[in-house]
Design a binder for these strands. Structure first.
Lengths: 242, 242
DNA sequence: GTCAAGCAGTCTTATATAAGACTATATAAT
DNA sequence: ATTATATAGTCTTATATAAGACTGCTTGAC
């Protein structure tokens, strides 16, 4: 089934890709245990160490989670991961505070040119567009505009009527089987519009940190465009470069 | 010399730390080759695969570089790495453009309270403080204020008289033996001061992206505080979350 | 209920083989 | 004679396999 000599693609990479394919096909769901290293090794007719090396790389990418003595599991992107991995706003002490959220708007709309290009949509596609405000220690601090391709999130309006959970990525995962694995962010300083200013309780023109995020699945398909405007008077965007 | 049973610290981690110690002691300089896996294995009386695992983790941290058939080398933090790893400003097309720099100011000064706390200095320490302006495609776009602890960069003023190279991290490495391995950044939106505005050719009050970076050595010692204020009209800060 | 043994999983280490890169030497062409 | 071109040898990292150690859960004896 798998061999090394055929084209010089290392065995462990072939196996890693084989696992990725099975995972993104939805064969296992988040939290599920996958077969043991030994079982996979037998099934694929390679040694346990080779399976191990393939799995290790997926663990490093946060696709899988290992628990010694238990097994290997599809990573569960729970609230903790969402907060620490995808939420980069900290207070002055450097602590991340879980924000509260209030949805202001939630409609199915024709995609704008920007949404079409950023989300790689077909012209004329529709998106679900959400606007919400987020509170940090009870103060309105972040405005978010979120765009979701309709074809990925079809029953959104039906299942869910603007009563959104705080952490959307959990919703995507649990309700739609879409797991966010990575994201690209662009940050800029902009001036608050009248609209922004009113909602954030500021003067128009106040500098805001704008974060434009495109969230991607394991296979790099863009599934969410999120534009956040953030009052950075008492908070900041924290990034660590390794 | 190294054993596994003594306290359950895996062999490969002991060896990794042993290598880190030798590296940060300055036993090898950037670009130098280190002994082969086989030699190290013999010297430390473990197997080649164990040395390999230790080295692998340092390669992943960009401390070492492997070249098949050649050997393993102390990572050379050349201009390319500095640009792609530590410079996050891109143009609208998402391309990183190498900036030009002009130093405006370069003096030895008493450290401010902020410098003392961010750089973990003793009270009353001195810093070398540099201010410079950076041009992206010939337009003044970024203002930087850089603070360096005097005790790490002693002969700075002497060797170098405000005629700074564009990429400072190369200078730190080559002239002072200080290699930047990681950094913490805090980003905020601020309003341009009169001073900023004049230099960047803007109106005072224009929103600027402020980046406050603390650069660290391999051993997490802070060695540079750099505050950048960036006009994000035609550029943005790019971050990828994996 | 408690505790010990067993089992099923990952984790660590060791060994063998493959593949890439340089060097020295031999050989062929000019 | 000189230069270019193979070629073999050796040193390096890269990959694959196997064996034993460790860990956490379960099950059954008491």
């Amino acid at each position: 089934m798998f061999t090394h000599k055929n084209g010089a693609i290392p065995l462990y990479i072939q196996i890693r890709e084989f696992l990725v394919a099975r995972i993104s096909k939805g064969e296992w769901l988040p939290g599920d245990i996958i077969p043991s290293e030994m079982q996979l090794a037998q099934e694929l007719d390679v040694s346990q160490g080779t399976v191990r090396k393939a799995i290790t790389e997926l663990v490093e990418k946060n696709v899988l989670t290992r628990r010694q003595g238990r097994g290997t599991f599809i990573a569960n992107h729970d609230i903790r991961r969402a907060l620490f991995h995808f939420f980069h706003i900290s207070d002055k002490a450097g602590h991340k505070v879980l924000p509260d959220s209030k949805a202001l708007y939630c409609r199915r709309k024709k995609a704008t040119q920007k949404e079409i290009s950023k989300l790689q949509l077909a012209p004329g596609s529709k998106v679900i567009r959400i606007e919400r405000i987020r509170f940090l220690t009870d103060k309105p601090t972040i405005l978010e505009t979120i765009s979701l391709p309709e074809h990925f999130f079809n029953e959104f309006g039906k299942v869910n009527d603007c009563s959104l959970p705080n952490m959307l990525y959990e919703l995507y995962e649990q309700q739609f089987g879409i797991t966010i694995h990575s994201a690209n962010e662009e940050l800029r300083a902009i001036a608050a519009s009248e609209h922004d200013a009113a909602l954030l309780n500021l003067e128009a023109g106040t500098p805001l940190l704008e974060i434009e995020r495109i969230a991607l699945t394991l296979e790099k398909t863009p599934v969410e465009l999120r534009i956040s405007r953030c009052n950075t008077k008492n908070h900041h965007y924290q990034n660590t470069i390794f």
